[in-house]
Write a protein that binds this DNA or RNA. Sequence first.
DNA 1: ATCGCTAACGTACGGTGTATAGTACAGCGT
DNA 2: ACGCTGTACTATACACCGTACGTTAGCGAT
Lengths: 228, 228
Amino acid sequence: MAGAKTRTPRNTLNPELIVRAALDLMETKGTDAFSLRGVAAELGVGPMALYTYFRNKDDLYDAVRNHLMALVPAVPEGESWPDQVRAVCRDLRRLLLEHPCLAQLLGSRPLSGHETARVAEGLLGVLRSAGFDKETAARTHTTLFTYVLGATSWEIQMATERRDPEAWRRLRTTMESLSSAEFPTVVELAPELARTTGGDEQFDYGLDLLLAGLESSNAVRTPASRSR
Amino acid sequence: MAGAKTRTPRNTLNPELIVRAALDLMETKGTDAFSLRGVAAELGVGPMALYTYFRNKDDLYDAVRNHLMALVPAVPEGESWPDQVRAVCRDLRRLLLEHPCLAQLLGSRPLSGHETARVAEGLLGVLRSAGFDKETAARTHTTLFTYVLGATSWEIQMATERRDPEAWRRLRTTMESLSSAEFPTVVELAPELARTTGGDEQFDYGLDLLLAGLESSNAVRTPASRSR
DNA sequence: ATCGCTAACGTACGGTGTATAGTACAGCGT
DNA sequence: ACGCTGTACTATACACCGTACGTTAGCGAT
């Protein structure tokens, strides 16, 4: 390996590689610690090299989000529509937990990109096939999406907080400083609140509430069956 | 040697003043553009002067969040519990819309601080009085809270996105580039999706779904039939 | 008068995203 | 074989960030 190799190879960089490196960095060093300089260093290039493939940081974020959303599975066939809705929501949640940075990416930018549309198409298709009219399908989709994102983001936030000893200590002290005279119910329910923060059960509880609400309403109209 | 804590600050600087200046800056220049240097400049002091009253930026964030959460009204008395829940959720949403930075503050840190506990106490009290057992009350509280935060954060995000012409243009172009062969339902429902993104109606739709789910479940045990 | 305490300031460091300009190589028309 | 041109990457620079550290000024108690 004599000196000749020091000349940089010409085409060592491509969008796919950059996205993968960016994702890797986000997950190992934390979403907040992510930086263009960091991913450039990981790839062994200067920070400006990335601007050949992405117009700016947000553009790279878009690409990473799209890359991750591609991992959401397709809607399962041959099940009842509530089960299909459940499947989509759980799949999205699982992906969010697997890649916590995705929660931040989805929260900080609107629905955009091919893969996000694919997921929306799946859920909207289920709702329309179930007999929801256009408006109700759209409303329900937005409700479900924001619920999944909100609930899971919260779960992730609490989990990462628990890992930071400084923040965790502060949280505990403020919790304990709450007078049971002033906030009797919070103090009384502290164990339950701690236990029910996050977890599959908590997520499914809210999801089932929404589904129960949907089924109890007369939103679903199938041509044949008016009601059960 | 008793008391004698009254040490007047040399100049006019105190936590309340700093928090107010910080809040003002967040709302005028945008949450992202907020910086310690900015608020210090607004107060006419050096950046380091703030560290006398706050340990770091996060500590100031905590104070601002607490300051804003104090604006959530108390739970109205003498109404049915679903109406009380509705009132709390709507009040919180209204405050979030009025102060968009609060959404970011609540999303990025867990429940902490006196005023956040006050709001939780109100909602938990309503649920417990309605007959929910401890665990269900805690679960329901978390569900409602994450729904309100998720739905409203999304709404705020979409609204701010619409204000940024660059992002708005990109969103439109990606929307229009979606083939109606690949994503027929998304394309068909585009008007409804645009119309149902945000707004009181959309928020209430999801909230009513959750409340309908609660009422249709047997989670509520009226005082007469209270067993657990 | 002197000490200790502390609010506030100034300086400096290491970090960020990115605008701008420069540089080396690939592939091409001739 | 040669020079041109476009592309991929580097180098430098700027404005800004949070904050660690050291300094100064003025008060209260001794």
